[in-house]
């Protein structure tokens, strides 16, 4: 650690943290895939209800997406508006 620029260390760790935060993307991926698959099944079973099924699926997908968006926001804050760099 001797002779290491503290700013570089914080920046590097922030980048790793941003990468780790984006692991949360797995959750919405699985959730939205599940919703889309189920809605495809539903359309197959009842093609006349296509409009309602699609809008319900979009709503569910949007809610499932929240956690992914939170992770994205945290990653963006770490990368572009890093609050830790001022504390050195």
């Amino acid at each position: 650690m001797e002779g290491m620029d503290p700013k570089a260390f914080v920046l590097g760790c922030s980048a790793i943290g941003a990468g780790l935060a984006m692991i949360a993307g797995i959750g919405p991926g699985i959730g939205q895939g599940f919703a889309a698959g189920k809605s495809a099944e539903a359309v197959g079973r009842q093609p006349e209800a296509r409009g309602t099924i699609t809008s319900t699926m979009l709503l569910g997908c949007a809610v499932a997406e929240s956690t992914g968006i939170y992770a994205l926001v945290i990653a963006l804050i770490l990368l572009f508006a890093n609050p830790l760099i001022d504390k050195i």
């Binding site: 949007a62 997406e65 929240s66 968006i69 939170y70 994205l72 926001v73 963006l76």
Partner: peptide, 16 residues
């Protein structure tokens, strides 16, 4: 919070 962050995150992510 979730309502505003969803819209913000999606558009900002696309923009970046």
């Amino acid at each position: 919070i979730s309502l505003s962050f969803r819209l913000f995150g999606n558009i900002l992510g696309g923009m970046i």
